[in-house]
Design a protein around this nucleic acid. Structure first.
Length: 882
RNA sequence: GCCGACGUGGUGGAAUUGGUAGACACACUAGCUUGAGGGGCUAGCGCCGUAAGGCGUGGGAGUUCGAGUCUCCCCGUCGGCACCA
């Protein structure tokens, strides 16, 4: 055995063994329990960062652990290969997105392989391969047939200078990121998937997912946001009716709203509608000032966070509706915080009992009328000046025949009365909205439709799938290059044969990632989207990915799997049995903002700082010595777009993959977010080297001790030998529990470090002593092997084993080795630690009490007082209360 | 703004079911080693205090014999908010 640990040599040898033995090629085997372990596939951004190392090492630790525990493990890998960054890179470098993407995949595949992951690479897929995305298209057509997919208009960000649709990420402070032009909202036709149809099921099924973190289930439940409320119709007053009849031509006679607080209906003093609402449009047509306000509302962001934080603005339309019970005329306002896409595009304003309505009414001098009082308090007749809205549920007042009711009876009574008049009813409403999948972008899966002048929108026949995306186009930032590609556009109408045009919109990349986990089970199938092998492997037993996917990706995947189930393609309903949400790896974000054009992000490694008047300033100095002042924008997830990733490659080259893996697993538990720092990498490296040295010293001193010889001397160990053996088996039990149940790899590693420290202090070189050391080293090596598979693979051989470590069964701790005769208990006086006692492990409570009271330190603090109470926690603690 | 989480020594973290706060490491300090460069070993290392002891888990209150852990309020940080993935 080499005395020196050489990571490059060790890692090459181990990887060559696994490759030639095909250790990680997964085969369906009905006789064995399968374990499908999946880490979320990466976007091929160019280079891996430490977040990837964390994600894939966690999956690898679990895969290797489960394999050694007898499971038939599948761990595949693929590439989420469509998306916006490829188009941005294409614009910057004048390279087609396809080439950029495939080059990135090649480099990142090499990086992942250098980490020694136990992956079945024969199942690798990329979502930009026609053999993959043809099934997106195929299923989309099935969804159109079943009505799950449908067409309607939706709102997008429009850059008027580039004449192009912008992603939310490309809108910065309301302006296009390249042009700086004020962004406008624009309504265009799009395709939607009817996820709300599955809203109830997606919500209720969360209870059947015990392997998911509570926080994720809570977030999903809140996102779906099922609420019971009332639809209420406010009849148009004469002025509104007249305006609509002459204006937009809309009739219908009422203004509909949805509310969860029908009990406050009598407190409604105004109505607020979205800028795009028919009443707003009709009023705007007659009032240029109002039209100006409506136009202003059209600008600005479509993002909920922006809408929720922007200044609330509104203007009166001059039109009115009638209260459904009192007939009172209520003014209709246009408000920028009411969005057409949510609910009915209109809300009733109840300032006394809603924060936002209160702020709006206060600002515009609208009446505020109390209709709910608290259950406990007296009637709170609140007169001006108002302090705040009373938003709690209470007892109705000033509500005519509905006075004196609690929340639920009030809602029920009001809903029933509305229904009798034909002006409303109870209704269930979801916060969840249907999923718009159309993207006006090139680098995505083409939507398989054809536009024909005579037949309209015609689906591409299955036999003509896939609609292949041309891979040689280079986007330039203005519009979709597909729309300028005659080779793509021109086709014949499948129905009438006349010349027609292809749809140029592509699909949201969330479509690609909503079913890849199913495809891995039948990755080579050319005949079908998935086949019977999916029923063997699915559901995914352990899914691992960043907490940032807690809602969208996971919800879309749950939805998509149900659609496939309902089409008879799979028996699976829930795709992921257990979910581990990995915490984000954070790093500083730095950018400079030129007077014109887009922000430039700087990697933290390229940023310097100085103190000026006690204030820290950041700057970037280029090779010519020119300094650019830089803004520090806090901490954020490592990403390509923020240019704050740390490439693991230099770490791997310097210390080896095992050190990189060990460090990421040791530095924090997996679910916790982590501020990147490489302090401590060296410590992980030194630990591996200590492990190597310990095995080397043991083997050099007389060779490995065979297993039979170890077993032979267990019955006749002396005290110190027994103690080390107990420590070894306690470590094994803890490592098994920490990996298998708790998923706290950091504490598993710490436990092995302690064991190795104990081995280092153990100086007994007798045959029995060497046998105990052999066993302790085997436990250390096996226990760490899921984390540092390469070095442990080699060390296992050196410890005298012919079978490769990855093919060994995981050992169980010997219960006999764990037994103890005595325990140390701590004694508190009034809750403060005062002493220790040593008692037999099975001592009864009376013995423990008297031992505690007899302790000299305890007596000093009891100081003649009488114990009022003595609390005994068996085998742990005694608390004497004086 | 809304939804979800997190906050413990100089640093990363440990404390698994309400029961010894700081395991295991990093950094630092001192010493040893005639293998100078990220070497090895030993010792020290929460704060105040000579000590006895006191204080201490973002801040404030509460429940309990006992709170890092449970409850309430506040502050800060991170993730998500539907076209980044």
């Amino acid at each position: 055995m080499e005395e020196r640990y050489e990571p490059a040599v060790v890692e090459k040898a181990a990887q060559q063994f696994w490759n030639s033995a095909r250790s990680f090629a997964a085969q369906e085997d009905a006789a064995r329990d399968k374990y499908y372990c999946l880490s979320m596939f990466p976007y091929p951004s160019g280079r891996c960062h430490m977040g990837h190392v964390r994600n894939y090492t966690i999956g690898d630790v679990l895969s290797r652990f489960m394999r050694m525990n007898g499971r038939n493990v599948l761990q595949p890998m693929g590439w989420d290969a469509f998306g916006l960054p490829a188009e941005n890179a294409a614009m910057a470098n004048h390279v087609p997105p396809a080439k950029w993407t495939r080059d990135n995949i090649a480099y990142m595949r090499m990086q992942l392989q250098s980490l020694g992951l136990a992956i079945d690479w024969s199942r690798e897929l990329a979502t930009c391969d026609p053999s993959y995305y043809r099934w997106n298209q195929w299923l989309f057509l099935r969804m159109l047939e079943s009505g799950v997919a449908y067409r309607r208009t939706g709102v997008v960000n429009w850059d008027p200078v580039d004449q192009t649709v912008l992603a939310n990420e490309q809108v910065i402070d309301g302006r296009g990121w390249r042009t700086g032009a004020l962004v406008e909202k624009r309504e265009i036709p799009m395709y939607y998937l009817n996820i709300t149809r599955y809203g109830d099921e997606l919500l209720e099924a969360l209870d059947g997912l015990p392997g998911w973190p509570e926080r994720v289930k809570t977030m999903q439940a809140n996102w779906i946001g099922r609420s019971t409320g009332c639809e209420i119709a406010f009849p148009h007053a004469d002025d509104t009716r007249a305006a609509l009849a002459s204006g937009a031509g809309t009739t219908g006679g009422t203004l509909k709203v949805f509310t969860t607080r029908a009990d406050t209906l009598f407190g409604a003093t105004f109505m607020a509608v979205a800028a795009e609402h028919p009443i707003a449009l009709a009023a705007g047509a007659r009032d240029p000032a109002l039209q100006g306000f409506i136009d202003e509302c059209r600008r600005g962001s479509t993002m909920e966070a922006d809408v929720a934080t922007m200044e609330k603005k509104g203007r009166p339309t001059g039109l009115h509706v009638l209260h459904p019970f009192t007939g009172r005329k209520l003014p209709v306002w246009v408000a920028n915080y009411v969005l057409m896409g949510y609910g009915e595009g209109a809300v009733m304003g109840v300032p006394a009992h809603d924060e936002r309505d209160f702020a709006f009414a206060s600002q515009h001098g609208l009446p505020i009328e109390t209709v709910v009082r608290s259950k406990t308090g007296a009637y709170e007749s609140v007169v001006a000046p108002w302090i705040d809205a009373y938003g709690e549920r209470g007892i109705t007042v000033n509500s005519g025949e509905f006075d004196g009711l609690e929340f639920e009876p009030a809602v029920d009574a009001i809903a029933a009365a509305l229904e009798r008049r034909g002006l409303g009813r109870k209704r269930i409403q979801f916060r969840l909205r249907d999923w718009g999948i159309s993207r006006q972008r090139y680098w995505g899966c083409p939507i398989p439709l054809i536009h024909c002048a005579s037949c309209g929108v015609v689906p591409v026949p299955d036999a003509q799938l896939p609609v292949v995306l041309p891979e040689d186009l280079v986007p330039d930032g203005s519009g979709n290059p597909l729309a300028r590609s005659a080779a793509f556009l021109d086709c014949a109408c499948p129905r009438c044969g006349s010349p027609a045009r292809r749809e140029t919109d592509t699909m949201d990349t969330f479509v690609d990632s909503s079913w890849y986990f199913l495809r891995f089970a039948s990755a080579d199938s050319t005949e079908a989207m998935i086949d019977a092998r999916a029923d063997y492997w699915l559901p995914v037993d352990q899914y691992i990915g960043g907490i940032e996917h807690a809602i969208l990706h996971l919800l879309y995947s749950r939805f998509w799997t149900r659609v496939m189930r309902d089409l008879g393609l799979t028996k699976v309903t829930e795709p992921f049995s257990n979910l581990l949400t990995q915490g984000m790896v954070l790093n500083d974000i730095f950018y400079s903002q030129p007077a014109e054009g887009r922000r430039v992000f700087y990697n933290p490694a390229d940023v310097d700082s100085e103190e000026v008047d006690g204030q820290k300033r950041w700057f970037h100095e280029d090779s010519s010595g020119k300094r650019t002042p830089i803004v520090h924008d806090g901490l954020g997830t490592m990403s390509k777009s923020k240019n704050n990733g740390v490439d693991p490659q230099s770490l791997v080259e310097k210390y080896g993959a095992d050190t990189a893996r060990l460090f990421m697993m040791f530095t924090a538990p997996p679910e916790q977010s982590l501020e990147w720092s490489d302090d401590g990498v060296l410590g992980s490296y030194r630990f591996i080297r200590r492990l190597w040295t310990a095995v080397h010293a043991h083997v050099a001193a007389g060779g490995p001790v065979p297993r039979a010889a170890v077993a032979g001397c267990v019955g006749a160990l002396n005290g110190l030998q027994k103690t080390l053996r107990r420590a070894a088996h306690q470590t094994l039990a803890k490592v098994t529990d920490d990996i298998g149940r708790r998923r706290t790899f950091n504490t598993a590693i710490a436990a092995v470090m302690e064991l190795l420290n104990a081995v280092g202090r153990f100086e007994d070189r007798s045959p029995a002593g060497r046998a105990v050391v052999q066993e302790a080293l085997e436990i250390a090596v096996m226990g760490l092997s899921p984390m540092i598979p390469h070095v442990t693979h080699v060390l296992w051989r050196e410890l005298g084993h012919a079978v490769a470590l990855i093919d060994e069964p995981w050992r169980a701790a010997d219960a006999g080795a764990l037994l103890q005769d005595e325990v140390v208990m701590v004694v508190q006086v009034n809750g403060k630690l005062r002493g220790e006692i040593r008692v037999a492990v099975d001592a009864d409570e009376a013995t423990v009490r008297s031992a505690a009271l007899a302790n000299a330190d305890v007596q000093r603090f009891v100081a003649g007082g009488t114990p009022r109470k003595i609390v005994v926690v068996p085998r742990k603690l005694v608390n004497v209360v004086v």
